[in-house]
Simulated assay, not measured.
Amino acid sequence: MIREVPFPSPDSPDLPMRIWIDDADSAIDVIDALALSPFATGVQPWSRQAHLERVRPDAALAPADGRLVRAAHVDDGSESRLICGDGWTLRVVRHRNRTATVSVSAVTEELARSVLKQSTDGAEEPKPDTDHVDMGFWWRGSHGGIRSEKPITAQPWAQISGNYSAGVRRSLDELMTITPADVSGRLILLHGPPGTGKTTLLRSLAKQWQDWCQVDCVLDPERLFDESGYLMEVAVGYDSDGDHDDKQRWRLLVLEDCDELISAAAKSQAGQGLSRLLNLTDGLLGQGRDVLVAITTNEDLARLHPAVVRPGRCLAQLEVGPLTREEAVRWLGTAEGVGPGGATLAELYAARSGRALTASAKDESTGLYL
């Protein structure tokens, strides 16, 4: 059954709205519509919104003088509230994972800012200790790109440099100490067999560069370069609120296991994907936004598209391989189980925990997320 329901704006009965409700709509959908009413009718033409991570359980997320108009709870732990005050309307959505979205509309921009500040100040718990770094995660939702920021475990480079062979460690030392003034290319290529520590390396890089560069991981890179609108959203990025941070940081987009995008046959296999990648790293799009791109691949460097590896395009091209037998024995503290060809980082961690990798596990192309 579908019903047309007229209802007034919370602040003005003279400017009605109409919504259509059917059996698929929930109480939270009604709260969403009510929250939009004063903004849509123009009664409260200013709107501000904030996304919060690690919200304190006791955080009110609303000014003390607000009055609760509607509240709805969902079985999955989510909660939505509509709170009104003198000249403003507030919508608060809290999720079970302790994130929240706070949206406010108001009669003036200054009031909207003030209500949002009162609602969010002190609402988040302090960031985790120094073994974490904030990383953004992008994916394509039904209404465009979505970004969520999470703290991830990341060790300083000095603590994990011994996980990498001496043959590549010097180049990695140089990469970790790069500053904006040293950027001479926009693409970072990390290639090598699965389990050699490429993802661990990127987490450490995010920590080493955190003062000047925001690292974002794109979870669906195949869609990123297939949809120009999504690419523009990600390339333009997500900066801190301009009211509090007027310093625009560089951004590093991490694309994992993108073999098909940069292979020698990429142009025929991926359509415009390769061209858009090159435009992001070496064209007007990338130059206008201070964007770096890091790609991990299991492909050998010789099998990559020549346009990707041409001189001047890459900030770094690094082959992350297994540790030699001597290095692996030193890392593990014993020669037991270490073959003549050395061992990957994944194999060493498995051996340290008393496990051994099977032959089938070695052949998987998952990267083993180390």
Rank of each mutant, 00 (worst) to 15 (best):
L280H: 05
D282E: 15
D282T: 15
D282Y: 10
D282R: 09
D282W: 05
D282K: 08
G283P: 05
L285T: 14
L285N: 05
G286I: 01
G286D: 01
Q287H: 14
R289F: 12
V291D: 02
V291C: 14
L292H: 06
L292G: 02
A294S: 10
A294F: 01
I295L: 08
T296P: 06
T296F: 03
T297R: 02
T297G: 03
N298V: 08
N298K: 11
D300S: 13
D300M: 14
L301T: 06
A302G: 09
A302N: 12
R303F: 11
R303I: 14
L304Y: 05
L304D: 01
H305W: 08
P306D: 13
P306M: 08
A307S: 14
A307H: 11
A307P: 01
A307V: 06
V309T: 14
V309W: 05
R310D: 11
R310K: 11
R310V: 08
P311G: 04
P311W: 05
P311C: 01
G312E: 12
G312R: 10
R313Y: 09
R313V: 13
R313M: 14
R313F: 13
R313Q: 12
C314V: 11
C314S: 14
C314A: 15
L315S: 03
A316Y: 06
A316D: 06
A316R: 08
Q317K: 10
L318V: 10
L318N: 05
L318D: 02
E319I: 10
E319W: 11
V320K: 00
V320C: 01
V320R: 00
V320I: 15
G321D: 03
G321Y: 05
P322C: 13
P322R: 05
L323R: 01
T324M: 10
T324L: 09
R325H: 12
E326A: 15
E327W: 04
E327N: 06
E327S: 07
V329P: 00
V329N: 08
R330S: 15
W331A: 07
W331S: 04
W331M: 09
W331H: 08
T334K: 07
T334N: 11
A335C: 13
A335F: 06
E336D: 15
E336K: 14
G337K: 04
G337W: 04
G337D: 02
V338H: 02
G339W: 03
P340E: 15
P340W: 08
G341E: 15
G341I: 08
G341W: 14
G342M: 04
G342S: 09
G342F: 03
G342A: 08
A343F: 00
T344P: 03
